[in-house]
Design a protein around this nucleic acid. Structure first.
Lengths: 290, 290
DNA sequence: CTGAATTAATAAGAGTTTTTTATGCATAAG
DNA sequence: CTTATGCATAAAAAACTCTTATTAATTCAG
């Protein structure tokens, strides 16, 4: 009937999602002329204008939008059927992951090795980023899945809690010996919008300590190094600090707060790619155990 | 994700329906090695044995059957969406039509020209055949649509009445002048299983004539020539005889029977190809007018 | 049991698509 | 007005799919 392949329609979907041929080309790991050619092919095969060239961009025509809407669930169903048939062994492609630093350090090593083992055809592209940008990228389709700390909720986003990590007040052994948290100066924390920052403030208040000027650093690993060098104390996720606690570079300098940091995975709520959904499912399930 | 195209899955469906690679190759207008290659491609992409090579043929594995079942409605939906998007202008491919001789002469010229006009991409392959074989071919997937005379019903078939044609008793002018039907010898009719044959017998009985030995000929056009040459009389569909009545080669030799021959179109009831279904719809609708 | 016929796999070459690379043109933004 | 962005186009390169022959295995018939 047609010479149209699945990737022609997939191309259509991604142009519709991302808005431009260029973006779709990047998402699909190919070049913009290739996208142009595919669209031209579809339009000629169907005898139908799917895009209106407007200004320097393109917009879907009414019929084009209709076609995209009709095709999306069917395409998702097809890929899902193909995937299930092969027991997910045939899953292949690039999945773009966004992760916050803490979630990355805590969850990603385990997750990545599980993916490599069970879904060898799947390649992960991981970018560390701030929560706000991550969510934006996931919503816009630039990223497929986000691993992040702290509860997030947004229309258009589907999230699943994947676990918690305890927080511990740490300082270098010297600093701790000189009076613990009470005497530690300064207190470090990561940026305003992190859930750790909130717990830090709460902890200080509950300990009857003044919420002094708090130094911030947007990178936990760096902060670990700073504190270990004897400069102040900070509240760290236990998982990230464990190696330095073991080695004695850092020691607890105050009772741990009762609050924990919770981790979540997020995908677009209308995500239809079965590979992405399968990865989401696995992330949500496996991390409970891990 | 995959390099699989729609036609890969379509190939799978047709192999499943027809049972052999060869038959699928014929149905899809290609060669058997091409089918082999497509299957090999699918199996390697999915990492899954879809067919078990058994003896000199192949049979679906359990997973293969599951895949086929999952894909069929999705594929049908996709093609339907594509077709609707293009306002059916993009409809293309070969549709195999089986027709009885009378239905062919009465309905097909009109139908074919309508198809050529509205769905220029669609090619018709028409084979005239006997009713029984036609139905068998439609059920087995060798033919897509059948045009036939007389009511048929079968599980697995969907039919729609498309019109009636009157029957007339005709003979050559000489034979008619010599006493009409009463004197005409012999009476001709087409094969036992035709609805015309039944009406012929009924007519003779109601006219008080003995149901004499009836000559048969399985081809109406030929029978028209025989009767026109002055040999006996026969009951003809009015539409087919009209030209010879106009030219005076044949004349009525008895009052027409009240019974009519009704025409039907038939498709497999689980037909999923949107092009075939669209043609069926058009056949059923347009012929009421025609 | 042998020979003919049917069915699928394989190999090589031909032909067609599809992609890439490079470029041009139009539009929007600074 | 200049720069940057986004799509279209052209030609060459790369990739893919089909066809034609041929082989191997199996079934069926005499």
């Amino acid at each position: 009937m047609h010479k149209l392949a699945i990737y022609h329609l997939e191309t259509l979907l991604w142009i519709a999602r991302l808005g431009t041929f260029r973006a779709a080309a990047e998402r699909l790991n190919t070049t913009q002329p290739a996208i142009s050619a595919r669209v031209r092919e579809i339009e000629s095969q169907l005898g139908l204008a799917i895009f209106r060239r407007e200004g320097r961009g393109v917009v879907l025509t009414a019929r084009g939008r209709q076609l995209v809407q009709d095709c999306e669930p069917l395409l998702a169903g097809l890929e899902s059927a193909l995937l299930e048939a092969g027991g997910h062994a045939g899953a292949a492609g690039v999945v773009r992951i966004a992760a916050g630093e803490i979630a990355a350090a805590t969850c990603l090593p385990h997750f990545a090795s599980a993916v490599r083992k069970d879904l060898p055809g799947v390649t992960l592209h991981i970018d560390l980023d701030l929560t706000a940008r991550m969510l934006q990228n996931v919503l816009s389709g630039t990223r497929d899945i986000a691993f992040l700390a702290g509860p997030v909720a947004s229309p258009g986003l589907r999230t699943a809690r994947i676990g918690e990590v305890s927080l511990v007040w740490l300082a270098s052994p010297e600093t701790a010996a000189q009076g613990g948290l009470q005497a530690a100066t300064p207190v470090w924390s990561i940026g305003e919008h992190s859930p750790i920052h909130r717990v830090t403030c709460e902890s200080l208040q509950m300990a009857g300590l003044p919420v002094r000027a708090i130094n911030t650093c947007n990178n936990v690993a760096t902060m670990l190094g700073i504190v270990a060098s004897g400069t102040g104390a900070a509240l760290f996720p236990e998982t990230m600090a464990r190696p330095m606690m073991k080695s004695g570079a850092l020691v607890e300098c105050a009772p741990p707060p009762s609050s924990q940091i919770c981790f979540e995975v997020a995908v677009r709520s209308n995500e239809s790619d079965p590979v992405v959904l399968e990865l989401f499912r696995r992330a949500a399930m496996f991390s409970i155990a891990g």
